[in-house]
Write a protein that binds this DNA or RNA. Structure first.
Length: 482
DNA sequence: CTAGGGTTAG
């Protein structure tokens, strides 16, 4: 029985008879179905067969599948390599960028550079965007120097260094809390790349992220001295910086100054203040500012509502948060995944897990549940002792909108020790094997806990298998995040 | 994927 006919029996796939250029039935190009088939294909032959079953392959389809395989790097790269042999398809620059991102994420830098070379030989890049991706990955792997180095060598790959890519470098450094390093680069190259208001804003935000508001203020002074006029974005960055650093009074004063100077306060400004006050417990002030913005004729956004809802969840009660949620629906807003995640987290926190799961179902009408949705619900199920329920939700992720990530595995494996059941440890071992197969590198602690557990429950054979697995990825960095 | 607001636990 062919892969397709077997699969169509199982999954009730839609098939077409007599397609234009083939005499076998082929799949309608639906990314969800194809991704699920790819996930089930455990050897190169069935994978290739699965790819040949689809027609036509388009750049959009390949991108959608790569996105779905985001948390299964090895499979994504395997797919990327096989689909390029398909006669009627040729990779787009965007697909290359995705694949490069994925290779870097699982720290397969050799594969990453191979892709860069291939991309170049096909004259599809690498583009400044490609470099931004690689710089971000190097920085998040703790290799900031390497990121600077590849920025410096961009031109050797036929990619022009310009203000855009320079700002991208600064941003990547700042977002990883390396504001000082970014500022160093900035001082050296600001003349050469003609640093603009965006460059200054990135640096100011970098200091704000490190809660160094005085430094951010200095950057703002410096830009004025050099004839670069701050924008509303600059002020919003500083405002957020004060709240983030816990300088509530300074934040409020800064907000008053902004109004006094007749800056056109926008929805971002208000949202910053609503959130800033709320998280310190000043719920009434939050609500007041919310009313004030409406009075001032500034329309709240979904983010504004989400901020207020989160504040109520954390500092008031989830019931009041739901009232605001309903109010936002009535006004015609469509909540997005962040809004739902905030409500779902609030419900979980109030130990209303069944209701949280109801909201997760309701969410599907407006947007897809995200990895955060699953992780929150799974985490609280586990904490509540509902481990079967957690595993049931976990199972639904394969074939759903997103695959489990490192956090998901850590949460589940961690909860396999609480019941002191031998079977749970077998599940933990199975999860460990699965996560390694998907390109994640478990911490040494995780390995040790599972190994000890298996030994204690008399599963020496399985423990040996896990030990062999550990040795295959022992040389890799121990901490692998996002 | 050149800048600002809303998701992460103890």
């Amino acid at each position: 029985m062919s892969l397709l006919t077997r699969a169509s029996k199982v999954n009730n796939l839609k098939t077409l008879q007599n397609p234009p250029s083939s005499n076998s039935p082929f799949l309608l190009p639906d990314p969800v179905t194809i991704t699920n088939l790819l996930l089930k294909s455990n050897n190169p032959e069935s994978l290739a067969q699965c790819i040949n079953t689809v027609s036509p392959w388009t750049p959009g389809l390949v991108q959608a599948i790569l996105k779905r395989l985001w948390n299964h790097g090895p499979k994504a790269l395997q797919f990327f390599k096989l689909v390029e042999d398909h006669p009627s398809y040729s990779h787009s620059a965007i697909a290359f960028d995705h694949a490069i991102d994925i290779a870097a994420r699982i720290r397969d830098y050799k594969a990453m550079w191979t892709l860069v070379c291939k991309m170049r030989s096909m004259r599809l890049g690498p583009s400044p965007k490609t470099f931004a991706i690689m710089m971000e990955r190097y920085v998040s792997a703790g290799k900031a120097d390497k990121a600077v180095k590849i920025f410096m060598s961009m031109h050797e790959y036929g990619c022009q260094q310009d203000l855009y890519s320079f700002n991208a470098l600064l941003d990547v450094l700042c977002k990883s809390k390396r504001a000082e390093m970014a500022y160093g680069q900035f001082k050296v190259f600001r003349g050469r790349f003609r640093a603009d208001v965006v460059s200054y804003n990135i640096i100011a935000n970098g200091f704000c992220l490190k809660k160094q508001t005085p430094r951010a203020l200095e950057v703002m002074k410096e830009m004025i001295e050099r004839g670069v006029e701050p924008t509303l974005t600059t002020y919003n960055i500083l405002l957020k910086g004060y709240f983030r650093a816990g300088q509530i009074n300074e934040g409020w004063e800064f907000f008053l100054q902004m109004k006094k100077r007749k800056l056109e306060i926008d929805v971002v400004t208000y949202t910053t203040v609503i959130h800033g006050f709320g998280v310190t417990g000043e719920v009434e002030k939050s609500r007041k500012v919310f009313d004030e913005m409406i009075g001032a004729g500034v329309l709240p956004s979904v983010a504004t509502y989400t901020a207020l809802i989160q504040v109520l969840c954390k500092k008031d009660c989830v019931e009041n948060a739901i009232i605001v949620f309903e109010d936002m629906l009535m006004k015609g807003y469509v909540p997005n995944a962040t809004t739902y995640n905030v409500i779902i987290r609030g419900l979980c926190h109030a130990e209303k897990i069944d209701m949280a799961i109801e909201y997760m179902d309701k969410m599907k009408d407006d947007c897809e549940p995200t990895i955060q949705t699953f992780n929150v619900v799974i985490r609280y199920c586990c904490e509540d002792g509902k481990i079967e329920k957690a595993l049931e939700i976990f199972d639904k992720m394969n074939g759903g909108s997103c695959l489990p990530n490192l956090d998901t595995y850590n949460i589940l494996i961690g909860s396999m020790f609480v019941r002191k059941k031998s079977d749970d440890l077998l599940v933990a071992g199975k999860l460990l094997i699965e996560m390694v197969g998907r390109g994640f590198v478990p911490r040494r602690l995780t390995f040790n806990r599972v190994l000890n557990g298996l030994m204690l429950t008399g599963n020496q054979g399985f423990a040996q298998e896990i030990l062999r697995l550990q040795s295959t990825c022992g040389s890799l960095p121990r901490h692998f995040r996002l």
